[in-house]
Amino acid sequence: MQAALRQHLGGARWALRVSEAALRPRCVGPASPPAPRCWSCGGALPSAEGLPHFCPGCRALQPPGPRPDLFRLMDCDRSFRLDVQRLQRRFRSLQRALHPDRFGQRPPEEQHYSEQHSSLVNKAYQTLLNPLSRGLYLLELNGVEPAQETDCDADSEFLMEIMEINEKLADSDTIAVNEILRSILKMKTQSSLCKLVIFYFISDDLQEAKKLLAKMKYFANLEDKLKNKKMPS
């Protein structure tokens, strides 16, 4: 009799625990972010993070994303090896669609977004067009610290080469000599080193790519020095 009573009470307690659990709110994961909405009409927007796009309902230009992928923005593969003609076509296409002159009669918000997009497109184009800034941006996307000139300080042969070019730059006093130096520096950055950087990015050896980009920074600084050099009158 007592055993049957205990069994009955145990069953009642179990049923009570089940009913209480059903009434308690369930623990759920973090809520998904709300779907993007048009600032003008409130309509739902397609998922196009970082890309300049217009509301499908009212055709209002939407603001740029907080951290757009510049490769995606310019419709280019995320690679150091780049199709420059494709980049240029995309740049011209975006500038035609987003230039502030096209939004002179639109609301102030759209005029502002147009200026933001236009500035972003210019930045993306210049970043990806230049091999050095393109490589540095790729390192950033892959979570690698920016390349510094000190990254190649262990290469004594390279540093001797830099010293020799610096001496020639200091001694040059004619436009003809400066043009020769400019050609040498361009060849170093856009030919010899670029081919190696492509190889290391393809091989996913980001640290070696970083060292070569550091060398490219040295040559780029020399190019700037040459560009700003004042010739004797």
Rank of each mutant, 00 (worst) to 15 (best):
P66W: 12
N228Q: 13
V121Y: 03
A15M: 06
C55R: 03
R17K: 09
F201L: 10
L212S: 05
K227P: 01
K210N: 00
S114A: 15
E49I: 05
T189I: 15
H99K: 05
F54N: 07
P33Y: 10
L87R: 01
S133A: 13
L61Q: 00
M231E: 09
S118F: 15
D75S: 14
Y137L: 13
A60C: 05
M74I: 03
E223G: 08
F199S: 05
E109P: 10
R13S: 00
V28G: 03
S32R: 07
R37H: 07
L51F: 13
D155G: 00
Q207N: 15
A209T: 10
R17Y: 11
G57F: 09
F91N: 04
R102L: 02
Q207A: 15
V18I: 06
R182Q: 15
Q126S: 12
F103W: 13
Y113Q: 11
M160P: 00
E167W: 11
A220R: 11
L87F: 01
P52Q: 06
F158K: 12
R26H: 10
K195A: 11
E223I: 10
G57K: 08
E140P: 02
M231C: 04
L138R: 12
P46V: 06
D83S: 01
V197E: 04
L159P: 00
I202M: 05
V177N: 12
Q85C: 00
A44W: 03
S93L: 12
S47G: 08
K211W: 11
L128C: 07
K227N: 05
C38V: 01
Q190K: 10
R134P: 07
G29E: 12
L73Y: 08
I198L: 05
G57I: 10
S172H: 04
S119C: 10
G29P: 07
V144W: 06
Y218A: 04
R134T: 06
A209F: 11
G43V: 01
C194P: 07
A15K: 02
H8E: 08
E140L: 15
D173I: 06
C58F: 00
P56F: 01
Q105I: 01
L9M: 10
Y218P: 03
R59M: 07
S183F: 13
T127Q: 14
E223H: 07
L9Y: 12
F80A: 06
A209C: 09
P46K: 12
I198V: 06
K195T: 06
N221H: 07
E223V: 14
V121H: 01
S172Y: 00
A15G: 02
P68M: 01
K227F: 10
A220C: 09
A4P: 01
L139I: 07
A3C: 10
R26A: 15
D171G: 10
L61T: 02
A4W: 08
E109T: 11
P100I: 04
E167D: 11
L73P: 03
F91S: 00
T174S: 15
G65R: 14
G135Q: 09
R81D: 02
A22S: 06
S156D: 04
G143L: 02
D155I: 15
K123W: 09
T174N: 06
R13Y: 04
G29V: 08
